[in-house]
Design a protein around this nucleic acid. Structure first.
Lengths: 209, 209, 209, 209
DNA sequence: GATGAATGAGTGTTCATTCAT
DNA sequence: GATGAATGAACACTCATTCAT
């Protein structure tokens, strides 16, 4: 009986061991340059064992993707609770996202990798799990907006506002890659703040109408 | 004499032949799953010939990327000239971007691929050429905004507005991938329109202040 | 238990199988014209397997090189023990070297290939291993000279004598390639003997002085 | 008529132009890394033209080989004339050879490349031409020895002595590659001098007997 | 459950040579 | 005589995945 629990614990540990190694390699060398054999060797396990815990390479990296989204969720949720006004809250959340894209650039890279990969590659169940995480993040934005001044806005509108707000942030962070070329001369943080202000203005307007 | 011209023409045709085949395969199978050998075989040319026309795989795909950005530029420029008011113009441009991402989804995918690829992958000169195309597109937005109502806005502000406006659109189009899951129940076109309205509101506000 | 041993044995056999095939091809076609794919095909193994047993082509051929040097070492050592006088010993060793260059011409060719290849080609560790073998062979000459009449010659002198003696033999064997053209009319064995006599004379002189 | 001469001159110039470029590249990048296309581009000629002047890559490099041997011949000949005694002459010649192997290392490398390449690779006529050059060099040694003290030595003996002397030098220079490993702690120049002394001793002895 | 040897199609790229113009 | 576009076999090497033990 205790042994069943122990087994369970060991299995969990093994899984973590694999993920830790994979994450480390991923962050060091990127997704393409990280092979299953390398992960196995670094984790001091056999390749076969990797396939016992993860169906294939893709699903291993999907797990890391979930991990990243989870981290992002936590950061954003925490920040959302710090501010007092709606503006303050959203600002903290927006910069939490930007910080995440910088501090955990590689997680952010996987996110984009998964977003821009041909759909065929991912099984439906994998997609579903990842989407759940995205949803959870969107919910934080929804909750924040809901608890804001806009008392009598209906849920659908709130949802839309959350999506637009998020996609604005995401779009800006995508453009960050261009900061040494197209955006030359601009401080990205300023630009991001500018974008945030624009988004806020539109929100307030909606409040108006 | 004529023979020199004919040679030139043939060379140009060959280049197109390669690009056509590469484009076709790329759109069918994605960038990683398209190999130089495949392109050669499908184009009924030898691999060596490919390397006569393109330095390497990367620059072949960069050529396709430029092609796509060129097409996008043309579409947006054309639309920008159709509307009469600033709002109308921008709306037409925004939807031109959306249409492009649908009609030429794969070009859009390459764009994202290049945006999210590790910088090391692309040589500086290649990046520079691609960036020029991106800049050209941004310029259309700048020109449109400049010729709009906002007479006394300085160039830097205009630039920022253009960047934010574009990144908003781009961010929304990124989220499109989620329309069957996260965005379930929403008509994407409506949502995009909603996002456009938000952006316009923030612009007007700026006009106000 | 036995199964672990068997596995070990099989691994060793596989390694030999690869080396045998590589040697055969090398001797038939030369080093450049022998590709990894060919070796794999002839050995009835997959290319991947080759890389399981040898880090790369270079180290596979280095293994053959070591093999050859090992063989040469053994031959020379054996001969060195047969003669009774110093002259007899050295003569047997000299002809062991010549016989080796004839009987194992291809091993001799690899030796020269490695000697004359640009240094960059070979990793330091590989060079070190090969050099150890060369040193071992030189040592046999040193030991023989030491145990000869020249009792009160210091080690450094002995070393130099060994090197010069060896390089004389090696130089002569290099010239063998020219026997049908430049050396026309000479019996190479005679010439080699002549060269050996010259070397002996200089040794004796040293003994004198 | 003059035009025929001009044509001839142009042809000769073109040939030199090719050889100059090939030599330059060879010395910069080594024999394997120098391709016909590169030579053509650097010489501002078309690949086809290269094949008009040289049957194939091999014969182009054989021409360089001849060039190198020619240079070596000249150096040795010149030095042979400087010394007054036999010993002085031979010493100058020996060091001329060593200097050549250092100053024109790449020429020396080609020489070894040709010496150690599988014979099949070279056409008989090519070999013959190269051998003629080697013979010419040997002759300088023969002449020097002949004009030395050893008045009543027959031609065959002289020939043998020249071959052995040369091969000794050559063997030593081959071993030079090992100076950082096997020969560690030895100054190669000293060692070479030592080897020369040995050779001289044996020559003198022959004089004696 | 765990192992790790084996697979083999696949990658991007090169290069000596040919030949129609 | 000169061109240079075209060839295509060949190269060394990688990698996700399988499966007998």
């Amino acid at each position: 009986m205790g042994s069943i629990e122990r087994r369970q614990r060991e299995k969990e540990q093994r899984r973590e061991q694999i993920l830790n190694t994979a994450r480390e390699l991923l962050f060091k060398k990127g997704i393409d340059a990280t092979s299953m054999n390398q992960i196995a060797k670094n984790a001091e396990l056999s390749v076969g064992t990797l396939y016992l815990y993860f169906k294939n390479k893709e699903s291993l990296f999907a797990a890391l993707q979930e991990e990243g989204l989870d981290l992002l969720y936590t950061k954003i949720r925490e920040e959302s609770e710090k501010g007092s006004t709606l503006r303050e809250k959203l600002k903290k959340m927006a910069f939490a996202y930007m910080d995440f894209s910088e501090d955990h650039r590689k997680y952010f890279d996987i996110m984009n990798y998964f977003l821009s990969s041909p759909k065929i590659l991912f099984s439906a169940s994998l997609k579903a799990r990842v989407d759940k995480h995205v949803n959870r993040i969107l919910s934080v934005f929804e909750d924040t907006l809901k608890s804001g001044v806009l008392k009598n806005t209906d849920d659908r509108e709130i949802r839309r506002m959350a999506v637009v707000f998020c996609s604005n942030l995401h779009g800006m962070l995508q453009f960050k890659k261009l900061q040494n070329t197209v955006l030359q001369g601009e401080d990205f943080r300023d630009l991001y703040m500018y974008s945030f202000d624009c988004a806020m203005k539109s929100l307030e307007r909606i409040g108006d109408s």
